[in-house]
Design a protein around this nucleic acid. Structure first.
Lengths: 130, 130
DNA sequence: TGTTCATATGAGCATTTGTTCAGGCGTTGT
DNA sequence: ACAACGCCTGAACAAATGCTCATATGAACA
């Protein structure tokens, strides 16, 4: 049931729909925080890093080899993952071993794979491993 | 147990760790597909759109009002959400009503909120609504 | 102390992203 | 047929992103 009305040049509106949804809407900061969380996994190299760390802890240079990027690139990405509290590290001499903070990332990752498995057959293979 | 070896200037390596993880590593395309999935939710306006549509279907101009953006901006974002198969629409006259494709996005969204709830108290409020 | 190694960091740069603006397309109602 | 309306699209541009390169830091070891 469409219910339009004019407000001096403003766009069309279903007033009750807008009011209902507006009440519960996320604030700008809240939406930003959520977006930032997803942004953390929105890059193929970071996806690879997280996936690698789901298997076991790894040092920076090993990660670099595994994902096929430079040490520096990996280090930059790890900073972002650290800032977003997705990874932690322990030091052993000169070497820093990175690992995932907890199991929430696994779940996020899994949901991402599940969505993909609708259109890509390969995704199912990885869902078994998680 | 650290096990280094040189390969003409190449970086340090824990060989077995690298081999083990490399076996299971995602290909470039696979990592890209996953990253693209997360990228879809990596913008505050798209987060708002998805969150709005979790309540009910909405037309473009209503979405624009609810999230506080221009019709055009919303339309651009909706295209991305369509491409990634996160939203669908039905036509009723001139008006297009957008809605979420299925419940997988809800789950993805929920996992994102859950991760945030570790550091932000407000996240719990929304988890109850989902 | 000085050197080497593992990692971090900052500047610089090319690419991507998200917006606005101007206009186009398809549907509705006159 | 024509105008109005809802929505889409492409160009343009500012902002953000992710890399490389050079350099800094901090721990180990000679």
């Amino acid at each position: 049931m469409v219910m339009q009305f004019d407000r001096c040049g403003s766009p069309c509106i279903h007033e009750e729909a807008v009011n209902e949804v507006s009440q519960r809407m996320l604030s700008g900061e809240e939406a930003q925080a959520l977006a930032d969380t997803f942004k953390t996994l929105a890059d193929p190299n970071r996806v690879k890093i997280v996936f690698a760390l789901m298997n076991r802890e790894l040092c920076v240079c090993d990660l670099a080899v595994v994902i096929g990027a430079s040490d520096s690139a990996v280090s930059h990405q790890l900073r972002m993952l650290r800032t977003q509290k997705l990874v932690k590290f322990r030091r052993e001499g000169k070497i820093l071993y990175y690992s995932l903070v907890d199991e929430h990332i696994d779940k996020l990752f899994k949901q991402g794979l599940e969505h993909i498995s609708h259109s890509k057959a390969w995704a199912a293979r990885f869902l078994e491993l998680i």
